[in-house]
Each structure stands twice: as structure tokens, then as C-alpha cells.
Computed example of a mutant assay.
Amino acid sequence: MSALLPVADTAQVRRYARDLFRRNPRVLGITVGLHALAALAGLVGPRLLGELVESIQHGRGTGTIDRLAGFIAGFVVLQAVLIRFAYLASARLGERVLAGLREEFVERVLALPLSTVERAGSGDLLTRTTRDVDALSRCVRLAVPETMIAMIVGILVVGATIAVSPVLALPLLVAVPILVFGTRWYLKRAPEGYLKQNATYSMITDGLAETVEGARTVDALRRRRQRIDRTDTDLRRSYLAEKYTLFLRTVWFPMVELSWVLPVVATLLVGGALYLRGTVTLGQLTAAVIYAQMLVDPVDRLLSWVDELQIGGASLARLLGVAEGETEP
């Protein structure tokens, strides 16, 4: 069995990822700004809807109601336009970052000493140049922009809830312990699990490549059974590695899914009790419940892409590790 190429450590991966995005400060600033404006435009609607409810409750004229409805529709259209350009900017940023990463990876591969390549075998290098590059491509194009968008929207939604009523923002904290505990448990185990999973893919590719390249020798020496056993062993290792990462997801996802419902229910119950006591208005309660519901999407998006980020991080560590090989004497 060929020796696998080195893998970069976590500190190297984080430092390199930060440097990649810092190389495009202007595009990054435009992207973040557009997403922030789109999120702000989306936060105006629930606040105006709360005022609309109060207008109906207090029997204000139809002119006021029509005006509020028109403003709500206008901000919905504005948000749609801003989201369109924000996603376009995210795509451009992702393509620029990915292009730079690919160029640097090709330079690293071509700079490898021939002895290192021969010792590692073609399977590991082939897997890193195909499967790992594809996984990292998906991460840079989709996971990173989506995560950034979710963080911006989530922060702004929490801020809007506090602006409506600080008391009604407290029920949002009910989901924090579940999210923190579950995510810390997952992140403690996921990086190593995905690195091992990717390494098993390299072993499979390496074994198949050796079998194909030495097919005549295998037939001449009657080594078919040994090559089949090698492939079965590699597949078994890959199955166990994927089974472990699947186990992590089946434990983590139900925990975070449970936390989606709790803030909405808690806000409704606490807000309803406060409204009956006259502490908050019906408009504030309406806006707070809608904001709690709006918080589900960014948090769901953020945590859903965390798994993809772990896969991308493992792939990036393997790509950066190519340059860690021994230098030619």
C-alpha cells in the first residue's frame, strides 16, 4: 500500500482560508453590504405589520392601513432586488476565491518531487485533484456565501427583536444551550471523521489504480484474489468511515432541529402573558413572533452548511498538505 501524502493542520487551514478572502477586500465588502441591506429591508416588513395590526385594533382609517400595506409591499420588492444582486456578488466572490485556490494547488502539485509522487502513488494525488477539489468548490461557491448571509441576517433579526422589545428578545435564548452543546459535540468529532473518510477514498482509488496499471502482472502471478481482497478491505474501511460521519449527523441534526420550534413557542407564550398584563402591545407581540419565525431560516441555513464546511475544511487540509511533502535532495 502506498503512503498517503501529508495533511495540513487546523491552524494552517484557518489561516489560509482567511487569507483567501482578504485578497478580495472590495468584492467582499460589496457582498457583505448588499446582504446587510437586503436583510434590513426584510426586517422592516414585520415591524410595519405590527403597526398594521395595531391600526386595525384601534380602528384607524383605511388610508393609514392602505399606506402601511403599500410600504410593506415596497420593502418586499426592494428586498427581492437587493437579494438578487447580493447573490450575484457572492457568486463572483466565490469564483474569484476558487480560481486563486486552483492555481495555487496546481503550482503545489507541479512542484512536488518525483520521489514523493512515486512513494505516495497516483491514487491519493488523483483523489485530491478530483474529489477534494470538487468538494472544496462546492464549499467556496455555496457554503461560505450561505453561511455569511445566515450570520448577517441572524444578527440583524436579533437586533430588530431587541429594538421592538428587549423583554420579547429573551425567549430567543431558550434555544442557545441546545445549539451550543450539540454543535460543540459535533465539531469536536467531525473534522477528524471527515479527514479519515477522505483518506479512505484515496485508498480505494490508489488500490484500483495499482490493479489497473499492473493488470498483466496480476494475471501472470495469479494475484487476483489478493487484489480483490485489497479492494474489499478498502471499501470496508470507507463504509465504516462514512457510517461514523453519518452517526454524527444523525445525533446532531435532531438536536438542532428541536431548537427551531422553541424560540417561536416561547416568544408567543411569554409575549402573550406580557400582553395580557399590558406590558407589551399587540403590535410588538406580532412583530416579535414574526422575527422569531424569521430567525429559523438563517440559523437553519447556518447549521445546515456547517456540515458542508467540515467537508470543505477536510478537503482544503488535504490540498494544502500536498505542499508539505519532502523536498528533493
Rank of each mutant, 00 (worst) to 15 (best):
G45Q: 15
E308M: 14
T211H: 08
F71H: 01
G29D: 10
Y16R: 04
S259Q: 01
A91I: 07
V212Y: 14
E51A: 02
V97W: 00
I152N: 00
R84W: 06
F21H: 12
W305F: 15
G193E: 00
L48M: 13
D66A: 15
T279A: 13
A73C: 12
L88K: 04
Y201L: 12
G214N: 13
P254H: 12
L179G: 02
A8T: 05
G42S: 09
Y87M: 06
M255Q: 10
L320M: 09
I155F: 12
L208S: 10
D307M: 13
F105R: 06
V27E: 10
A317E: 08
P6D: 05
L168H: 05
A169V: 09
E192T: 15
I290E: 01
A11F: 07
L5S: 02
G63H: 03
A41T: 11
G63W: 02
L187A: 03
G33A: 14
L248F: 03
A3H: 15
V109E: 06
I56C: 01
G207Y: 03
Q57G: 10
L302Q: 03
I311A: 12
V81P: 01
T147W: 00
W305G: 06
R119H: 08
C139T: 15
I30R: 13
W185V: 02
E54N: 04
E104W: 11
A241N: 03
R96K: 13
Y244A: 07
L240C: 07
S202A: 15
D229G: 11
A120L: 01
L98F: 08
E326D: 15
L170D: 07
W260S: 06
N198I: 04
E146M: 10
R26K: 15
V265I: 15
G100M: 09
Y201G: 04
P166W: 12
L125K: 02
Q226F: 08
V218P: 09
A323L: 09
Q197Y: 08
A160R: 00
E324M: 10
L282N: 04
S165T: 04
A169T: 09
L316Q: 06
Y239F: 07
I162Y: 04
A73L: 14
G42D: 00
V265F: 12
G272W: 11
P177W: 09
R108C: 00
A323T: 07
L282D: 02
V265Y: 11
I311W: 14
A69G: 13
A266W: 02
G278C: 09
L240N: 09
L114W: 06
M255A: 15
V180F: 12
G94H: 02
C139S: 14
Q226V: 13
V270D: 13
V44P: 02
P171R: 00
